[in-house]
Design a protein around this nucleic acid. Structure first.
Length: 664
DNA sequence: CCAATGATAAACATAT
DNA sequence: TATATGTTTATCATTG
C-alpha cells in the first residue's frame, strides 16, 4: 500500500524524466524540477525521480533516503552475490531481466525510487536469507557434483589402475579422498557460517522453499531475478526499456501480490534457484557451454571480460568466454577457494547491511522521527504515505540538529556532501578530495552504473594526476573514465564531449604539445583557484547534506560510504580484483594526501610545481607519449614519484581539508 | 534576481 | 573523406 503511495509520488513526476537516460538530463530537469528546492534541490539527473516530493517532511525524507540507502546496499550485495550464484539459463536471463526485473542495476542506482524496491528490513533479511539459502544450495549441489565427479574419477582410476602400479593408484585415491574431505570441510564450514548468522534455518535439502518460507518476501520475486541477472552491462540496449518497465511496474505492481506474478518470462526460465536441484552454478555453465543459444551474456561475463573475481581476462565473445571459463575456472581447488571468498564477501556485505540498518534506526530515533519508528521499515514505503504531509518542516528543527548524527562514522566526508544530485559541486569543491572517495569506492563505481559525484574537471584532474607523468592524452583520459566508472561506459558521445569541453574550458588543464601529439596536464594552481567560494554557514551545509542525501545523493554518497566502510574484502583489490589494484593504489595515495590529513611531504618533493604558474608543476611532456598507457616507467623522467607528487603542500591542504573548512 | 559554476549540445576548426 | 581532437558558444540547472 505504501508502495502505491510511493509510486504515486513518483508518478507525479514528469514521466520519462530519466527515461532518456540521465545524461540527457537537461530536458527532464526543466519541467519538473524547480519546485523541489524547498526540501532540498533535486538534482536533475541523478535524482530526477524525486523531484516532485516537495512536500516531504524531513523525517520522511530521511526515512526515504535511508531506505534507498538500504536498497543500494542490498543492490550491491546482490550484485556481489550474483557473481557467485550464476544464473541459470542465459538466454532466459536477458528477457527475464527485461521483463521480470524491472529494475536493473543501473536503474536502481540512478533512480532508486522504484517503490517496490523499497524493502523493509525484514524483507531485506528475507531476501538475504533467500540468497544465502540459494547459495548454500548451489554450493551443496556444487559439492555434490564434485563429489560425484571425484567418485567417478576414482572409479575410472581404479579401472585404469589395473594397468598401473598399485601404489600409484593408492596415491591418487588418497589425493581424491583428500580433495573430497576438503570439499566436505568446506561445505561444513560454510554451513556453519551461515548458521552462525542464523541465516540458515532451512536445511539444505529444503532449500527449495525459501520463497515460501518467507512470505513477507513477497517483494522479493521482483528483486530476486537480479540475483541471477548478474551485473548488467552498461550500454545494453535493453536498458531503457527496462527502465520504462520498471517505472510502469512501479505503478501497477504496487502491492506485494502483484509481484507474485511477474510478467511471464521465457519458459526455460529455470534459473530460479531451487529444487529441481539444478545447481545453478554448475548447470549454467554447462548449459551455456553446450548450447550456444545464449545471445545474451553470462553473469560472469561482461564488458568483454571475465568477471570471475580476480580475473579480467578479455574474451571477445561469449563462446570464447565459456571456453575460458571452463578452462581457467574449472572445478578445482582454486575456483572453490575463490568461490568461498566470494561467499565471504557476500557475508561481509550482509553484515554491513545489518549494521547500516541499525545505524539508520538510531539516526531516525535520534531525529525523533517518531519513536514509533524504531522499525521504520516494517512498513516499507511509507515514505510518501507517511504521516507528514506537512513537509517543509525541516529547516530549524531537523536540519540543524541532525547534522552531527547524520554523519555516520563510516561515511567519509565524501559521502556527506550533497553527493548525488549535485554531482558537481559537491565533491569537487567542497568536499573531500575526489581521490579519497574514489580510492575507497572505486570498486563500486567501477561496477555500478552510477554517476560518480564528481565534476568532469575533478575527474579529469584525477585521471591525470594518477599517472606518474601527470599527463595524459585525450584518449587516455577517455580510457581512464571508462575504466574507472561503469557509468562512463555508455553515452560516450556525451561525456567525451564534456571531457573535451572541460579540458578546453578550464585553465587548469594545460595542453602540452608533444612529438607525437599532445598531452594534457593539470595546473594545480589554476585548479585551486577555480575553487569557488566555499559553502559557508553550517546551516547551509546541513541543509545541503540533508537535501543531498535525499535523492540521488544516496547513490554516490551513501553507497560510497557503504562500500568504503564495509567492504574490507571488496576494497582489498588483491583479493577480488588484482587487476584493478594497480589503479587503486595510486589513487589513494596520490592526490589524497588524505582528505583528512595534511600532506606529509612538504613541497620538497615537487619543487617545480610552485614556480610556473603556467605549466603547473614540472610537468614535462613525455618525449614519446604513450606506448602503453599503463606502462608507466618506473623511473619517470621527472617525475616525482607518485607519493611525492602529491605534493603541493599548501594548495593541497586547502583542498583536501575542505570538509573541515566547510563546517567552520 | 543575479552571478558563478557545471553539464550538455552543438557548431566549427584542425590534424591525422 | 572520416575521425579524432580542440575550441567556442549557447542554454539550462543549481547554488549561494
Amino acid at each position: 500500500m505504501m508502495v502505491e503511495s510511493a509510486s504515486e509520488t513518483i508518478r507525479s513526476a514528469p514521466s520519462g524524466q530519466n527515461g532518456v537516460g540521465s545524461l540527457s538530463g537537461q530536458a527532464d530537469g526543466g519541467g519538473s524540477g524547480a519546485a523541489g528546492t524547498a526540501s532540498g534541490g533535486a538534482g536533475r539527473d541523478a535524482a530526477g525521480v524525486a523531484d516532485s516530493n516537495g512536500e516531504m517532511s524531513p523525517a520522511e525524507l530521511l526515512h526515504f533516503q535511508q531506505q534507498q540507502a538500504l536498497q543500494v546496499a542490498r543492490q550491491f550485495l546482490l550484485q556481489q552475490a550474483s557473481g557467485l550464484s550464476s544464473p541459470g539459463n542465459n538466454e532466459s536471463k536477458q528477457s527475464a531481466s527485461a521483463v521480470q526485473v524491472p529494475v536493473s542495476v543501473a536503474m536502481m542506482s540512478q533512480q532508486m525510487l522504484t517503490p517496490q524496491q523499497i524493502l523493509s528490513p525484514p524483507q531485506l533479511q528475507a531476501l538475504l536469507q533467500q540468497q544465502q539459502a540459494l547459495m548454500l544450495q548451489q554450493l551443496q549441489e556444487y559439492y555434490k557434483k564434485q563429489q560425484e565427479q571425484l567418485h567417478l574419477q576414482l572409479l575410472t582410476q581404479q579401472q585404469a589402475g589395473k594397468q598401473q602400479p598399485k601404489e600409484a593408484l593408492g596415491n591418487k585415491q588418497l589425493a581424491f579422498q583428500q580433495q573430497l574431505l576438503q570439499m566436505q570441510q568446506l561445505q561444513q564450514q560454510h554451513l556453519l557460517n551461515l548458521q552462525r548468522q542464523g541465516l540458515v534455518s532451512l536445511q539444505p535439502s529444503q532449500a527449495s522453499g525459501p520463497l515460501q518460507t518467507l512470505p513477507q518476501a513477497a517483494v522479493c520475486p521482483t528483486d530476486l531475478p537480479q540475483l541471477w541477472k548478474g551485473e548488467g552491462a552498461p550500454g545494453q540496449p535493453a536498458e531503457d526499456s527496462v527502465r520504462q518497465e520498471g517505472l510502469d511496474l512501479a505503478g501497477t505492481a504496487a502491492t506485494a501480490t502483484s509481484f507474485a506474478s511477474p510478467p511471464k518470462v521465457s519458459p526455460p526460465l529455470s534459473h530460479h534457484p531451487l529444487p529441481n536441484g539444478q545447481p545453478t552454478v554448475l548447470t549454467s555453465r554447462r548449459d551455456s557451454s553446450s548450447h550456444e543459444e545464449t545471445p545474451s551474456s553470462h553473469p560472469l561475463y561482461g564488458h568483454g571480460e571475465c568477471k570471475w573475481p580476480g580475473c579480467e581476462t578479455l574474451c571477445e565473445d561469449l563462446g570464447q568466454f565459456i571456453k575460458h571459463l571452463n578452462t581457467e575456472h574449472a572445478l578445482d581447488d582454486r575456483s572453490t577457494a575463490q568461490c568461498r571468498v566470494q561467499m565471504q564477501v557476500v557475508q561481509q556485505l550482509e553484515i554491513q547491511l545489518a549494521k547500516e540498518s541499525e545505524r539508520l534506526q538510531a539516526m531516525m530515533a535520534h531525529l525523533h522521527m517518531r519513536p514509533s519508528e524504531p522499525k521504520p521499515f516494517s512498513q516499507p514505503v511509507t515514505v510518501s504515505a507517511d504521516p507528514f504531509p506537512d513537509g517543509l518542516v525541516h529547516p530549524p528543527t531537523s536540519a540543524a540538529a541532525p547534522v552531527t548524527p547524520l554523519r555516520p562514522p563510516g561515511l567519509g566526508s565524501a559521502s556527506l556532501h550533497g553527493g548525488g544530485p549535485a554531482r558537481r559541486r559537491s565533491s569537487d569543491k567542497f568536499c573531500s578530495p575526489i581521490s579519497s572517495e574514489l580510492a575507497q569506492n572505486h570498486e563500486f563505481y567501477k561496477n555500478a552504473d552510477v554517476r560518480p559525484p564528481f565534476t568532469y574537471a575533478s575527474l579529469i584532474r584525477q585521471a591525470i594526476l594518477e599517472t606518474p607523468d601527470r599527463q595524459l592524452t585525450l584518449n587516455e583520459i577517455y580510457n581512464w573514465f571508462t575504466r574507472m566508472f561503469a557509468y562512463f561506459r555508455r553515452n560516450t558521445a556525451t561525456w567525451k564531449n564534456a571531457v573535451r569541453h572541460n579540458l578546453s574550458l578550464h585553465k587548469c588543464f594545460v595542453r602540452v604539445e608533444n612529438v607525437k601529439g599532445a598531452v594534457w596536464t593539470v595546473d594545480e594552481r589554476e585548479y585551486q583557484k577555480r575553487r569557488p567560494p566555499k559553502m559557508t554557514g553550517s546551516p547551509t551545509l546541513v541543509k545541503n547534506m540533508i537535501s543531498g542525501l535525499s535523492y540521488g545523493a544516496l547513490n554516490a554518497s551513501y553507497q560510497a560510504a557503504l562500500a568504503e566502510s564495509s567492504f574490507p574484502l571488496l576494497s582489498n583489490p588483491s583479493m577480488l580484483n588484482p587487476g584493478s589494484a594497480s589503479n587503486l593504489l595510486p589513487l589513494s595515495q596520490d592526490d589524497t594526501g588524505a582528505p583528512g590529513e595534511p600532506l606529509p611531504s612538504n613541497g620538497s618533493s615537487s619543487p617545480p610545481r610552485l614556480s610556473p604558474p603556467q605549466y603547473s608543476h614540472q610537468v614535462q611532456v613525455k618525449e614519446e607519449p604513450t606506448e602503453a598507457e599503463e606502462d608507466r616507467r618506473p623511473g619517470a623522467p621527472l617525475g616525482p614519484p607518485n607519493a611525492s607528487i602529491v605534493g603541493p603542500p599548501e594548495e593541497r591542504d586547502l583542498e583536501e581539508e575542505l570538509p573541515g573548512e566547510e563546517l567552520s
